[in-house]
Nucleic acid binder design. Structure first.
Lengths: 206, 206, 206, 206
DNA sequence: AATGAATGAGCATTCATTCAT
DNA sequence: TATGAATGAATGCTCATTCAT
């Protein structure tokens, strides 16, 4: 096996880990499974990642990056309030100032966030589960907490461009709670309800 | 070993499972560890629970019961339903004497819920982690979802005695999101912020 | 592989362990090597011995028993002083009161012990190394110390039938020191010197 | 990492090896552990020492030097050679003022040796175990035997300045046997008994 | 009905060594 | 000359499960 000099190997192992976790969960992640998925020798995974926790940490970090990029690229969220207001009526379906929420000033943001979630749930369900599973793993793995905290921080920061930080934090918490209920109980995502509740949080600002 | 006729064995095994999970997480749960913790022969655990999933389901159900009882017994929450009932239907803005939140009608409920959480976080951290770990396990274990759904349902029902069902559901989601942030990122529980955001959800009712 | 119901399996594993250690040293002892040597499945060794230390302890104990039996069966040592004295001159070669040692009263015991060592060194060298290696392993493995202490105790007791306990202990120490020098430096066993020094210890009694 | 031209590296690696062995035993010695302890690249250890046996040999040699220096520096033993030299050749029973042993001529030497041991056991127990473990390793590693033999030889030579060579050899054997019993069985060092038995060996000279 | 001996698969991890630089 | 990336073998150990009793 002449595979020396593979500078991307570390990266490929992380990607393989994400695929393994997506398929079988963190419980299915082992040096062996990830080595097989990445098509590298077993020793290579232990060489690059001294422990599974280390690999898990790297995987969570990558997952965060993936999500951040996805959010940044999301059309629904990218829209700026000013532009929106300026947009002529008859525009896109979701952004027209209060589809459901009573028309308070928070309607636009609430609507956009709801749309992001809608897109997210409409896409590959495995991807959401993957990201949540990694994120939730921090509950029992203290080494993951700093990375989980980074993620939460970054989500709050992103929303802070549209509202005050405390409200942003609450929006993230509510979104997470809503997602969790959908994912854990197998119930359907209810866009109207979500939009309404997000709007309450935004509009409740003193 | 003359332990025949032990009608409580099933129960003792479940309790042992909860202790094992509290100590080492679900990953540490095995027929062996639970048998040792319950001081029961190895074969006994496989006899009473055909698979670990079965045991896990029973454990989650018990955990839910424990939490429900704790909530029912909580002084903070058990409070003023009587007053509420006594209040004239369709009356004014409700209970205005909320401690903390600016005086919106949701102040009292928000305050009580915040207090419940405060008590919860002040107590044994292991207990919270245990309950959350079991609940979150439903993400990857479909067999647990019905039980997780039961739990969510029951929480919503409990809150529905104080507000409308949709708002109750959102309160549960927000509470879960807040708890998750505390547990996953290791940050401190912020009572004022929690109270304020809960109140926004309650008071936002159309 | 239908090998259920093998009540002697534990014993066979210990015997196999002794053979493995004799051949490759404690460093060569592993669950795998011992399983192969005993012709049992790998899992069988870990089932019967929860850890290698446990297996090692059992092996040292067995080794001690083997040695004790060998000593008991040794003709050289079995001879009783009274009988010896009563025996007509021209008897066996080594027991005649002071072959080398100056004729002090300790000559007989010293001579017999020397003969035991001589027999021992003349036999299978691997057996001695095996026993010493197991015994010396207690230096770094506290769990072995009680067993090593048992062995030392038993050796002292055996010699105490022929002299006072303190002297017996010193004889054992001297014998061990002499053996060690032979085994560690590769030098030859010097019977005359050994006899002489043992006699000094015995005869030095106040 | 600009650590070229490091003439002391070999030495530092050996010192690190001694620390590793002191901490985790020979079983804990590996190229990796010693490289980490010496703060040296992994490749450096395999470069300077072709095999672990080579490193082990060097470590045993250094350990011997350390012990020899310690013995030389010991006040207890460094004692009265002058008096000895001053004593008329072929004189009477030697140094009779032995502290403890009944006054035989060997009393002084026995007393001094006992004191050396007492000091040794009073000091860092890890150091003794380290030295013994390395020394005893020769049992199973023929390459170490010459070095172990050097050590024994040197100890005998040192004692030979105070008594005849055969007696010196026996004293070393007895001392080793006594130490071994203490180290292997975890029993306490008994100075009176040791002094008495050493004296018997010295005084037994024909 | 209940148990514990038995087993093969799998695990994380450590390792000596090789080799291209 | 010196190094660290790389790798295949081996380690101790845990496990769910089977099955004869």
């Amino acid at each position: 096996m002449a595979r020396r000099y593979d500078p991307e190997r570390r990266t490929r192992i992380i990607d393989a880990a994400l695929r393994v976790i997506a398929a079988d969960g963190i419980a299915g992640l082992s040096h062996r499974t990830v080595a097989a998925e990445a098509d590298v020798p077993l020793g290579s995974t232990t060489y690059h990642f001294g422990s599974l926790d280390e690999l898990l940490t790297a995987a969570l970090r990558r997952s965060n990056e993936n999500f951040a990029r996805a959010l940044r690229d999301s059309e629904a969220f990218a829209a700026q309030p000013a532009e929106c207001a300026a947009r002529p009526a008859g525009g896109g379906p979701g952004v027209e100032d209060g589809a459901g929420a009573g028309g308070g000033p928070g309607a636009l943001l609430a609507d956009q966030l709801t749309q992001v979630l809608e897109e997210w749930f409409a896409g590959d369900r495995g991807a959401i589960e993957l990201e949540y599973e990694l994120y939730l793993a921090a509950l029992r793995r203290p080494v993951l907490r700093p990375v989980a905290a980074e993620w939460a921080e970054s989500a709050v920061e992103t929303l802070s461009t549209r509202t005050d930080p405390a409200t942003a934090r609450a929006l993230v918490a509510l979104l997470e709670g809503v997602c969790l209920q959908v994912l854990l109980t197998g119930s359907a995502f209810d866009a109207d309800y979500t939009r309404e509740m997000l709007a309450r949080v935004v509009d409740g600002r003193a």
